[in-house]
C-alpha cells in the first residue's frame, strides 16, 4: 500500500499516508525495546492528560464541581454505570481496570486527532496487548470464579443435544477470535480514518501544480473536514465499544450460564 504510494508522485503530489504511523526514536536512530520513541512521548502525553483531568482537575474536591471536575465525574459515572449494568454488580471490583483501559484508549484516540500527533491506538501491537490483557483476565477470572463450570459457556444447554457439540466448537472458536476482533476493530478503525485524512491532505496542494486543482483542492479540504468530524465520532465510539465489549466478556466470565 505505502510502497505503491511512494511510486506515484503525480504532478509533484507526495503520498505518504502511512508514514504517520512510523515509530521513530526521540534520540538516536535505532529502535530497540527500551528506546524512548514517539510512542513513549504520546503515551506520556496521554498519562499527563489523564492525570491533569482526573487528579489535578478534581484536586479541589468541590461539592459544586468545576468544569474539569465535572468531566472527571462524568467519565467516572459513565464507566461505573456501564460496568454495573453490563457486567453486573459483582464486576465493580474490576472497575479501576476497565476505567484505566477506557481512559487510555479514549485519550489516545483524541490525542491522535491533533495534527502531527502519533496515534498509539492505531497500532495493532498496542491494541493487541490491551485485548490480550482483557482476554487473559476474563479467562482467569472465569476459571477462578466458576472452576470447570466456566466451560459451560461453550456448552449451549438451551440447544438440542445433537447440536451442542457443533455449537461448542463454534463457541470455542468465537471465544478465541474475541481478542483478534477486539484489537483489530480499534486499530483498524483509527488507522483507516487517519490514512484517509492523509490521502485527502496529499491532494490538497494540487492547486499549486495543476489547473484542475481549483476543483480538487476545495473538495479535498472539505473531505478532510468531513472525515475529521467522523474521526471525532470514531475516537469516542471505538473507545466505548472496546470498553463495553470488555464488560460483556467479563459478564461471561462471572456468569457463564447462557
Amino acid at each position: 500500500m505505502a510502497t505503491e504510494a511512494h511510486g506515484e508522485e503525480a504532478g509533484g503530489l507526495v503520498f505518504h499516508p502511512m508514514d504517520q504511523f512510523m515509530v521513530e526514536p526521540l534520540f538516536g536512530a535505532d529502535v530497540s525495546w527500551y528506546t524512548p520513541t514517539n510512542v513513549t512521548l504520546w503515551m506520556l502525553i496521554a498519562v499527563l492528560t489523564i492525570t491533569g483531568l482526573l487528579v489535578v482537575g478534581t484536586s479541589r474536591r468541590a461539592l459544586v464541581p468545576s468544569r474539569s471536575q465535572s468531566v472527571a465525574e462524568l467519565a467516572y459515572g459513565f464507566i461505573y454505570k456501564m460496568v454495573e449494568d453490563v457486567a453486573g454488580k459483582d464486576a465493580v471490583k474490576f472497575f479501576p481496570y476497565i476505567f484505566t483501559l477506557f481512559m487510555f484508549i479514549v485519550v489516545s484516540n483524541f490525542l491522535g486527532l491533533i495534527p502531527m500527533a502519533f496515534t498509539t491506538t492505531s497500532h495493532i501491537a498496542v491494541t493487541a496487548v490491551l485485548a490480550v490483557a482483557v482476554f487473559v483476565t476474563v479467562t482467569v477470572v472465569g476459571f477462578v470464579k466458576n472452576g470447570a463450570g466456566f466451560l459451560g459457556l461453550f456448552w449451549v444447554s438451551s440447544a438440542p443435544l445433537a447440536l451442542r457439540p457443533i455449537l461448542a466448537v463454534i463457541e470455542i472458536i468465537s471465544y478465541f477470535v474475541r481478542p483478534v476482533s477486539h484489537s483489530i476493530r480499534l486499530a483498524g478503525n483509527l488507522m483507516a480514518g487517519h490514512a484517509v485524512i492523509k490521502v485527502f491532505a496529499a491532494f490538497a496542494p494540487l492547486i499549486l501544480f495543476s489547473g484542475i486543482g481549483i476543483l480538487v483542492t476545495p473538495l479535498s479540504i472539505l473531505a478532510i473536514t468531513a472525515i475529521y468530524a467522523l474521526e471525532i465520532l470514531v475516537a469516542f465510539i471505538q473507545a466505548y465499544v472496546f470498553t463495553i465489549l470488555t464488560c460483556v466478556y467479563l459478564r461471561d466470565a462471572l456468569h457463564p450460564s447462557h
Binding site: M1, A2, T3, H6, H16, M18, D19, F21, M22, V23, V31, S32, W33, Y34, T35, T37, V39, T40, M43, L44, A46, V47, I50, P96, Y97, T100, M103, F104, T120, S122, H123, I124, A125, V126, V129, L130, A133, A187, M191
Partner: peptide
C-alpha cells in the same frame, strides 16, 4: 518513508509493547 504497513513492522513491536505496559501500570 515506511515500507509496508508500519503497524506490521515486527522490529517496532517490542518497543510499543514495553512502553504500553509501562504506561498502563503507571496509569492504573
Amino acid at each position: 518513508g515506511a515500507v509496508g504497513l508500519p503497524q506490521l513492522c515486527g522490529e517496532w513491536m517490542p518497543n510499543q509493547i514495553f512502553w504500553l505496559v509501562v504506561t498502563l501500570i503507571v496509569l492504573f
